[in-house]
Design a protein around this nucleic acid. Structure first.
Lengths: 140, 140
DNA sequence: AATGCAAATGCAAATCGTTTGCAACTGGAT
DNA sequence: ATCCAGTTGCAAACGATTTGCATTTGCATT
């Protein structure tokens, strides 16, 4: 049985934050929640234009920044490319980037999280956030 | 007693790789090996100009790319800033970035390394390299 | 020490991803 | 239906980095 994955209602959240639901924002949110990959701004823009030809790339960037600020999306600056985005639904995870395809695989290790915490502790620091990325190629 | 830390002789290495030891390269290498911080290209450039006023920023970038290719320096693209460099002497380590000062603290966890390896294994990947960065603030 | 030439340099212009100023437009509260 | 601050599209600006090109410079050769 599928667990009833309670999907976040981003439009509702934006409204509550006192932010207008405009046509471009609707479109971008729709793209974001409907994608399970990690598109960059240009990819989002290309998908958006298919739905509403009048959307501009600047608005994509502005909206991503807005959503990031609200905690609705996460921005990832993987090596050697533009920033890529992911809706912030679901639990925290790190990333393995396929160097041949650019595909992103998510993973999570509670043990690693704990060790990071412990290292920061020992150094006298509080972690604000962290970034763990593995870059590799499929074994054959 | 200090252990006799065998310092790498970069000029020698470059020469062996068939690369010319020019004045700008000498200066940049001197800066790199003499710094224990993680300067960005502009910082290296500023330090270099003090030694030889004719050096250009373009040459700093070209040299950093060259040295990176030779494995003599590591390039780090920490969040929200230009790339920062570090001479590749010494053992592998990860970084904790002080969000207040920008200072970089190095650390290493063999356990984390092993866990990363294990995760990649399970996903059927060979890790080419990885990046683990903790962003935090000094606890008070 | 003088020569030759590919490699390296400085400069300025180009590139890439992203941000911003501004005038025109539009949600949504009234 | 009206109003106006928030939002947009456009194009220009931006910061970091790279590149084309004419000029220098290592350094292997005489």
């Amino acid at each position: 049985m599928e667990p009833a994955t309670t999907r976040r209602d981003y439009e509702r959240e934006l409204r509550q934050a006192g932010i207008r639901i405009t046509k471009p924002r609707k479109v971008i949110l729709q793209i974001l929640t409907g994608s399970e990959d990690h598109p960059d701004a240009m990819a989002i823009f290309r998908r958006a234009v298919k739905i509403d030809a009048s959307i501009s790339l600047a608005t994509v960037y502005r909206t991503m920044k807005l959503l990031e600020g609200l905690g609705a999306v996460h921005r990832h600056a993987f090596e050697g490319g533009p920033a890529r985005f992911e809706h912030a639904d679901g639990a925290h995870h790190d990333h393995l980037i396929d160097l041949d395809t650019g595909k992103v695989i998510e993973f999570h290790s509670e043990t690693i999280e704990r060790l990071q915490q412990q290292i920061a502790d020992e150094l006298g620091y509080d972690i604000e956030h962290h970034r763990l990325e593995l870059y590799g190629r499929k074994r054959r």
